Amino acid sequence: MSRESDVEAQQSHGSSACSQPHGSVTQSQGSSSQSQGISSSSTSTMPNSSQSSHSSSGTLSSLETVSTQELYSIPEDQEPEDQEPEEPTPAPWARLWALQDGFANLECVNDNYWFGRDKSCEYCFDEPLLKRTDKYRTYSKKHFRIFREVGPKNSYIAYIEDHSGNGTFVNTELVGKGKRRPLNNNSEIALSLSRNKVFVFFDLTVDDQSVYPKALRDEYIMSKTLGSGACGEVKLAFERKTCKKVAIKIISKRKFAIGSAREADPALNVETEIEILKKLNHPCIIKIKNFFDAEDYYIVLELMEGGELFDKVVGNKRLKEATCKLYFYQMLLAVQYLHENGIIHRDLKPENVLLSSQEEDCLIKITDFGHSKILGETSLMRTLCGTPTYLAPEVLVSVGTAGYNRAVDCWSLGVILFICLSGYPPFSEHRTQVSLKDQITSGKYNFIPEVWAEVSEKALDLVKKLLVVDPKARFTTEEALRHPWLQDEDMKRKFQDLLSEENESTALPQVL
Rank of each mutant, 00 (worst) to 15 (best):
R3I: 04
E4W: 03
E4P: 06
S5Q: 09
D6Y: 04
H13P: 14
G14A: 15
A17C: 06
C18L: 10
S19L: 07
Q20T: 08
V25K: 11
T26I: 06
S28F: 14
Q29L: 09
Q34K: 06
Q34A: 07
S35P: 09
G37R: 09
S41E: 11
S42D: 13
T43K: 06
T43R: 03
S44M: 10
M46K: 04
P47H: 10
S50P: 14
S52A: 08
S52Y: 05
S57A: 05
S67K: 08
T68M: 03
E70K: 07
I74H: 12
P75C: 13
P75W: 09
P80H: 09
Q83G: 07
P92F: 14
P92Y: 13
P92M: 13
W93S: 01
R95P: 03
A98D: 01
A98S: 06
L99T: 13
G102S: 09
G102A: 13
F103I: 15
A104W: 13
N105M: 07
E107C: 15
D111Y: 12
Y113V: 11
R117P: 02
K119P: 12
C121N: 06
D126G: 12
P128M: 06
P128A: 05
L129Q: 09
L130N: 06
D134H: 13
D134V: 12
T138V: 04
I146R: 01
R148I: 03
I157Y: 04
I157K: 01
H163L: 05
S164L: 03
S164T: 02
N166G: 05
N166T: 02
T168Y: 00
F169M: 08
N171G: 08
T172D: 03
L174F: 12
V175P: 00
K179Y: 06
R180W: 14
P182R: 00
N184C: 09
S187K: 07
A190M: 12
S192G: 05
L193T: 03
L193W: 01
F201Y: 14
V206D: 12
V211C: 11
L216Y: 04
Y220E: 02
S223F: 08
G229C: 02
G229S: 01
C231P: 01
G232C: 05
G232P: 00
E233V: 08
K235V: 06
A237D: 02
R240A: 04
R240P: 04
T242I: 05
T242R: 07
T242W: 01
K244A: 11
V246I: 07
V246H: 00
A247P: 00
K249V: 03
S252I: 07
K253I: 14
F256M: 02
F256K: 00
S260D: 09
A261H: 00
E263W: 06
D265F: 15
A267S: 14
A267Y: 11
L268Q: 13
N269S: 06
